[in-house]
């Protein structure tokens, strides 16, 4: 069965970090349209700082732990605790599993989602990162249930995360800073859904390439 080991897989998280850093300007741009424009700057700062403390040969789980610590202790905002909780829960799950196969990868993402839900108050449809994360994970599970292999399910995950992000364009924000705008928040993608889609896409492609 296709799988990768936790050991030596930290390079995957370095790719995620590089993707976030590369998207610093567009993420801030999107956030500025209906938020305060700091999303890209703070995300790039957190992921960039974590990357400096991660070696490509580290365990992927310990790289996730390092990223979580930086986000929670040094970045703050709302994305610091949300992604911080997500990566901490994913690190726990991966540590227990030791390897990532189709099942344990899904479990890791499920744990990450639960980490977010533990402190956030958003629901699907509120125009948040959940609108990229939740449908992508459901589609991943469904693909496996239909008998697709790990690599194919990872591809589904990446596509659905991007599709979920795109659907936030037509949503009205119901939580966070943009929520105060009501109808005026329609017409722009959510910044959190955009960064979440970047994370999930890069993560799934990174795993798929190493299978």
């Amino acid at each position: 069965m296709a799988s990768i080991r936790d050991e030596g897989a930290a390079g995957i998280l370095l790719e995620v970090a590089a993707e976030i850093v590369a998207n610093r300007a567009p993420l801030s741009e999107i956030d500025g349209l209906i938020g305060d424009g700091d999303h890209g700057v703070n995300m790039a700062k957190g992921f960039g700082r974590a990357a400096e403390r991660i070696d490509a040969e580290d365990r992927l789980s310990s790289a996730m732990r390092t990223l979580s610590d930086v986000l929670m202790a040094e970045i703050g905002g709302s994305m610091g605790p949300l992604y911080g909780m997500m990566f901490a829960a994913m690190a726990d799950s991966l540590e227990r599993a030791g390897t990532l196969d189709a099942a344990t990868f899904g479990q890791m993402l499920r744990a990450g989602l639960e980490g977010i839900e533990e402190i956030g108050q958003a629901k699907v449809g509120d125009k948040t990162l959940l609108d990229a994360f939740v449908p992508a994970l459901s589609a991943y599970d469904a693909a496996l249930a239909q008998g697709q292999d790990f690599a194919a399910a990872l591809d589904v995950l990446a596509h659905e995360a991007a599709a979920g992000r795109d659907r936030t364009v037509d949503m009205v924000a119901r939580i966070g800073r943009a929520a105060r705008l009501g109808e005026r928040s329609r017409g722009v993608a959510d910044a959190g859904a955009t960064s979440c889609a970047l994370i999930l896409t890069t993560l799934s492609r990174g795993v798929a390439r190493r299978l």
């Binding site: 300007a25 801030s28 741009e29 956030d31 500025g32 349209l33 209906i34 938020g35 305060d36 424009g37 700091d38 890209g40 700057v41 800073r177 943009a178 105060r180 705008l181 005026r184």
Partner: peptide, 27 residues
Amino acid sequence: TLPAVGHPNFQIEPGTMELGIGHHGEP
């Protein structure tokens, strides 16, 4: 303008004002 971004993240057209603007430029 957030200095690290370098340009304003929203616009207020000359000759207009945003009534009820937030402390971070929330429209």
